[in-house]
Computed example of a mutant assay.
Amino acid sequence: MARLVPLLVLVCVAVISAWAWFRSAEPVVLPKLPPVPAKVDSPPPVEEVPYTTGPASADGIGKFFHGREIAKVMGHPHINWLERPEREQEEAPSKAISDIDLAPDAVIADIGAGSGYYSFRISPKVPRGKVVAIDIQPEMLDFLRTKAAELKITNVEPHLGEIDDLKLPAGSLDAALMVDAYHEFSHPREMLASLLKALKPGGRIFLLEFRGEDPNVPIKPLHKMTEAQARLEFESAGFRFTGNLKPLPWQHLLVFERP
């Protein structure tokens, strides 16, 4: 036992010395790691639906998507029909616009904007944002620029798209509007994919189409769509249906969103 006492003393001295050294040592500073970049949400994968072809009807192009024949495009020579004075009485665009809920700083694309009839009327709802007025016909955009200058509207931005691509950056849109135009898209599958990419997660689409279910709507059949057909095409492209804002005199106002 007597021999163990000096040994225990030595052990205690060693422990106390080690503790004192540890307390006086400089703290170890770990290098800062670079911040982890925020995850960018990618659009959900969707299955490519093939086009089919067949004999063209009088108002169609003989190309079919989900069984629907695509209609011929109404070109810039028909601007007067888009700007007709009786359009408010027939279609109630002011009611449609009042039903479209947008933040004041939202960026909304008017796809197939044509003469800008809707673009200019919706621009006051986004005073700190803008309306990207997209068309594939330069003549339509020329008309739109002249009209914007006459009206002194500065938050409507003309934008030339392509038949299969909006030509917009990913995640750049809060919302999109399509008024009686989607049924004429010659490449709807590609355009829906382009729109899915351009919308932010939760971004909405407001789709106006003449009601295909209603024989009393005085529009050629290929220039109308049923709610069921629109849902089939948009939901198959990865969008989620959120509702039909009824009623308008002749049209559906369908709302979809990017998940």
Rank of each mutant, 00 (worst) to 15 (best):
P55N: 07
A193M: 08
N155I: 05
H78D: 04
L151I: 13
V131M: 04
L222N: 05
V126H: 01
K200H: 08
A176G: 00
R189F: 06
P138F: 05
F256A: 00
E227M: 02
S186E: 13
H76Y: 11
P50F: 09
P77I: 12
S172I: 14
I153C: 12
E26W: 10
V131R: 06
L30N: 10
V49F: 06
I97T: 03
D41C: 03
G62H: 01
G171Y: 00
K125H: 06
D135R: 02
G112M: 11
F64R: 02
P93K: 14
L168E: 02
P31M: 07
L245M: 12
A20R: 15
K147F: 06
A193I: 09
R68N: 10
D165Y: 04
A18R: 14
K167H: 05
R240C: 08
E213N: 05
E150M: 09
Y117R: 10
D165C: 05
D174L: 02
P127F: 01
E257T: 12
V131T: 13
S98E: 15
H66P: 01
T242Y: 05
L253R: 09
T146N: 12
R231T: 05
F241Y: 15
S115K: 08
P158F: 00
H252P: 09
L166A: 05
L245P: 03
S123A: 15
F143L: 08
Y51W: 06
A58G: 08
A176H: 03
V156F: 11
D165K: 15
G243S: 10
H187F: 03
H78C: 02
I153D: 04
V15P: 01
T53G: 03
T53F: 13
P104G: 00
P6F: 10
M1P: 10
G212N: 05
S115P: 07
V29I: 14
P85L: 15
E184I: 00
R128F: 09
E162L: 14
R84E: 03
K152Y: 07
L208M: 15
G243A: 14
Q229G: 00
R189N: 09
R204S: 13
S17W: 12
S98A: 15
E209K: 06
D105S: 14
R121S: 08
P188M: 04
R240W: 02
P35T: 09
D214A: 12
P35H: 13
S94G: 06
V126Y: 03
G203P: 06
A175I: 10
K130M: 11
G203L: 11
G212T: 09
H183S: 01
I134M: 05
M140Y: 04
A96M: 13
I122H: 00
K63M: 09
L222F: 04
D99Q: 15
F239I: 03
V255M: 03
E213S: 07
P215R: 08
A133V: 11
P221M: 07
P35D: 14
